Computed example of a mutant assay.
Amino acid sequence: MALTDEDKDEILLAGRYGDLEDIREFVSKFGAEPLAEIRDENDNSVLHMVCGNGHLDVLEYLLPLVPPTLLAAQNSAKSTPLHWAALNRHLSVVQKLVEYPDGPGIDLIDIKNTAGHTPLGEAELAEWDEGATWLVKVMNLDAEDAEKGNGDVEDVGDDEIGVPQDIEVEIEDAEGQVARMTIAGTGASKSS
């Protein structure tokens, strides 16, 4: 059965409003393959709609049905579903996207949109400390250090092995605003 424009609009709306029953019906009727290709006029996918509106149950249903590349799909503003989830402060959705075993993982955190913002940058702009803290904790901060140190181990002094150390993070947005964050073993504090 061929998809009509109305069918495409309906699946995007079902994603936006979290209508799992309509999404299951769509998959039953057309299969899962079209889910990866359907976009709105701004190139948003069904995952953009689901993640931007925080529908974790729908996301959990869709993840095994769509190709992992859809997690990193960018709309016309180059924002991914993770950008939308971070902007709208949906922690469980952010975590599910980053931790999905078959997906791109922490690499999603490094994707920049046309404004030059990563999902972490969007969380900071939304003043969403909980999400920004979680993203910083899971992102790969060691890649930069490894390049600088050529594999050398840095002397950590008399600190006990296994004791969490504070991490100082500075994030600069496209407008040159700098946010500083200290991440401790159990939380974070932010200063501007």
Rank of each mutant, 00 (worst) to 15 (best):
M1P: 12
M1H: 11
T4W: 05
T4A: 11
E6P: 03
K8P: 08
D9T: 14
D9V: 05
E10Y: 06
E10D: 15
L12E: 12
L13R: 13
G15M: 00
Y17F: 15
L20G: 06
D22E: 11
R24C: 13
R24H: 09
V27K: 03
S28R: 07
A32E: 15
E33G: 06
L35K: 00
E37A: 11
E37Y: 08
R39P: 03
E41F: 13
N42S: 14
N44Y: 06
S45I: 02
H48F: 08
V50D: 08
C51M: 07
G52C: 01
N53E: 15
H55Q: 11
L56S: 08
D57V: 01
E60N: 13
Y61H: 10
Y61C: 03
P64W: 07
L65I: 12
L65D: 11
T69A: 05
T69P: 00
L70P: 02
L70M: 15
A72F: 10
A73N: 05
N75M: 06
S79C: 08
P81T: 03
P81K: 02
H83K: 11
A85C: 06
A86C: 15
N88Y: 15
R89Y: 12
H90A: 01
L91I: 14
S92L: 09
S92I: 08
V93T: 12
V94M: 09
K96Q: 06
V98R: 00
V98I: 15
G103N: 11
I111V: 14
N113L: 00
A115E: 13
A115Y: 11
L120E: 13
A123Y: 01
E124N: 13
A126C: 10
L135E: 10
V136F: 04
K137V: 00
K137T: 13
K137S: 14
N140W: 02
L141Y: 11
D142P: 01
A143K: 08
E147H: 07
G149V: 06
N150D: 13
G151C: 00
D152T: 11
D152N: 11
D155H: 01
V156S: 10
Q165S: 08
E168I: 04
E168P: 03
V169F: 06
E170C: 05
I171Q: 05
I171H: 14
A174L: 04
G176Q: 12
Q177P: 01
A179Q: 14
A179K: 13
M181H: 02
M181N: 06
T182K: 08
I183Q: 04
A184S: 15
G185V: 00
T186G: 00
A188C: 13
